[in-house]
Design a binder for these strands. Structure first.
Length: 415
RNA sequence: GCGGCCAUAGCUCAGCUGGUAGAGCGCCAGGUUGUGGUCUUGGAUGUCACGGGUUCGAGUCCCGUUGGUCGCCCCA
């Protein structure tokens, strides 16, 4: 190497081979599962007007205040690499004039997100999320259905038994304001015993204290009021309905009054699918109801609910890594047979068989190549075979070999 | 943004209290000029992350930087 090798930018990584196959398995499974629930896939831009995020996520959230990749483009506009996709989906709903008809809309997405954070296990600066949103549905049936779709994906991925759904309600605006006041009163009374972090939270976002990992904080949290007595009758009924529907759908739930979401746009249902298998990054899929977000984007009131999941985290939970397909290797003996071999390899592909032709070397070289590709079979085509209209069909696992007609070889391999 | 640990061949790692680098795997070639995977023989490969310091001498000790990793914060 003449000059120092270039590294991927901190917090980014290349997805190659097995790693990419795991990601693909997660996304593909999610895509298929959500399609069964009627979700259609959207792709919104990877960067947006900075205001799309600043407005929606909340001015005090860490994501907005210190984790966004924002820059001024050559035209002088402030744009931001999306840190999440819900805001972009809502913006797209409004931009495309879809707020007036055909609601609710069920949207699935998958793609890279960007946050300037210190990388650690299951957390990268460029990471990937899948997500599902139901836009324009105020009914608890919608909450239950998106959550069920998420649970379905975890089940299809074979990782649902290590994951639990923790669920809570943040109530409507009235409930939330009342609860917030009660919490502030409680924590203010214990202000001196709170951690430094939590004293800051008390000013910025008191609900977050419920989430604190500090031991001293946890003692104070243990005696903190819960939201239930502060829920309006309507909000309480809503939560009950969501829980009932989830039970009907067979999604196991665990009520956790300490679940709060980090982004400001949530109300009513808040949930996290968590696991203890990923160290500090236990949340694998999370979301909730965001009834005011579309309005923030300049649309009409459009109650909505959804979730996002980290592809890296789901991929890490996969027990078996998906195997690469095993090709059939077509091997010409000598350059004179290369064109005949090329024709044969293309016929195999047309028949739906994964096929490769070894490019160079003598028979031994090309057989070694076939082995490296972990080919399941080799088709050896030499001068003698060409003259007879046959091919040597070698089973590379069994080590057995037959001389068969070309059509017969293709038939056997595509079976 | 804060803290712990780590950085030696393509990969996984060894290298004692400082004396100028090794293994396994992989790679290349031969044993076998129409047969891989097994076996066997031989071979190549390192600015010991980078920069500075201490020392007669640094992979080894010290400082800084970069990167990785785990945790805090935050979040998927």
């Amino acid at each position: 190497m003449a000059s120092p090798a270039l590294q991927p930018v901190r917090g980014t990584r290349d997805l190659i081979g097995e790693e990419h196959r795991r990601h693909h398995r997660v996304i593909d499974t999610a895509r298929r599962a959500t399609a069964l629930y009627g979700f259609e896939e959207w792709a919104t831009p990877v960067f947006e007007d900075t205001r799309v995020f600043a407005r929606s996520l909340g001015d005090t959230s860490d994501v907005v205040t210190k984790e966004m990749y924002s820059f001024t483009d050559r035209g002088g506009d402030s744009v931001t690499l999306r840190p999440e996709n819900t805001a972009g989906i809502c913006r797209a709903l409004v931009s495309n004039g879809l707020t007036q008809s055909n609601l609710p809309r069920k949207v699935f997405y998958a793609g890279p997100m960007f946050r300037y954070e210190r990388p650690q296990k299951g957390r990268y600066r460029q990471f990937h999320q899948i997500g599902a949103e139901i836009l324009g549905a105020a009914e608890p049936l919608a909450d239950a259905e998106v959550i069920a779709a998420g649970w379905d994906i975890l089940t299809r991925l074979g990782i649902s038994d290590g994951v639990v759904l923790e669920i809570n309600t943040l109530g409507d605006a009235e409930s939330r304001d009342a609860y917030r006041a009660a919490l502030v009163a409680h924590f203010t009374a214990h202000r001196d015993a709170l951690s430094d972090d939590s004293r800051v939270r008390l000013e910025k976002n008191p609900l977050r204290i419920l989430d604190s990992k500090d031991e001293g904080d946890r003692r104070i949290v243990a005696t903190a009021p819960t939201i239930e007595p502060h829920l309006t009758p309507a909000a309480a009924a809503f939560f009950d309905a969501v829980l009932r529907h989830l039970a009907t759908l067979g999604v196991p739930t665990r009520k956790n009054p300490r679940i709060v979401r980090g982004l400001d746009y949530y109300s009513h249902t808040a949930f996290e699918f968590v696991t203890d298998r990923l160290g500090a990054q236990g949340t694998v899929m999370a979301g909730g109801r965001y009834d005011g977000l579309v309005e923030e984007m300049g649309g009409p009131p459009t109650p909505s609910v959804g979730w996002a999941a980290g592809v890296e985290r789901l991929a890490m939970l996969l027990s078996a890594s998906p195997a690469a397909p095993r090709p059939v290797a077509v091997i010409p003996v000598g350059e004179a047979q290369e064109d005949a071999a090329l024709g044969l390899v293309q016929r195999l592909r047309a028949a739906g068989v994964v096929a490769e032709i070894a490019y160079k070397g003598n028979l031994k070289r090309r057989m070694e190549r076939a082995n490296k590709l972990s080919a399941r079979a080799a088709l050896i085509l030499g001068e003698a075979e060409a003259a007879a209209g046959v091919v040597q069909l070698r089973d590379l696992d069994a080590g057995t070999q037959d001389s068969v007609a070309i059509d017969e070889a293709i038939r056997r391999l595509s079976a």
